[in-house]
Amino acid sequence: MSRYLLDKFLYTVDRDPELVERYREDPAGTVEWWEAEMANRILNCTSDERSTWLEFTEDERRALREHDHVTLFQMGAHPFLTLTLFIAMFERDHGPLEYQKAYGKAMEHITLPYPDITT
């Protein structure tokens, strides 16, 4: 499992409005494309430098495909990254703060100590 790769996915998708929409409409296709094309690019690097070893586990792929922020948090993905991305994708479907409250309610069963989210 790679918390780095999960966070990198959430971070890069959230910063591109077209990717946000693509991930909302086609999560499986977006995850597959992103893993093949973006996962091994060096973050914030302008050249075509790449690493070769980063890939999601099947559990990570499933959680990303299903927009499962609870499982992503339990895997160590940073909750601010999932919250900001998921707000961009789903807040429009709800009234003011309804999505944020539902996001928190879905995680209220998780107790201390929380998963390590250090990066």
Rank of each mutant, 00 (worst) to 15 (best):
R61C: 05
T84A: 06
E58C: 00
D48S: 15
M107G: 11
Y23T: 09
F86V: 00
H78E: 09
E18P: 01
R61W: 04
E91I: 00
Q100E: 11
A88H: 06
G95I: 04
Y99N: 01
T82M: 01
E21G: 04
P27G: 08
E91F: 00
L10R: 03
Q74W: 03
F56I: 04
D93H: 08
E58L: 10
A63K: 05
R62A: 12
L64T: 03
R22I: 00
D16N: 15
V31H: 06
L83Q: 07
N40K: 15
K105E: 08
L112M: 13
T82N: 01
D68A: 10
K101T: 08
N40V: 09
W53R: 08
P113T: 12
E98K: 05
N40G: 11
H78G: 06
V13E: 03
N40C: 08
L64M: 08
G29I: 10
H69T: 09
T30P: 12
M75Q: 12
I110P: 08
I110N: 07
D48L: 13
A88M: 03
I42W: 11
P79E: 05
F80K: 12
E60F: 01
G29E: 13
A39K: 02
L64D: 05
L81Q: 07
D7M: 04
T84Y: 02
S47H: 12
R24M: 03
D116P: 10
D16W: 04
P113K: 10
T71Y: 00
D26F: 12
T30K: 06
E37P: 01
F73K: 02
A36W: 09
A106T: 07
Q74R: 15
L43T: 14
R50L: 13
P96Q: 14
E37S: 10
L81P: 01
E91T: 00
C45L: 12
R92M: 07
A39E: 06
M89Y: 04
T71N: 09
F73T: 06
S2Y: 02
L5P: 06
L85E: 02
T119F: 14
Y11R: 10
H67S: 10
E18T: 11
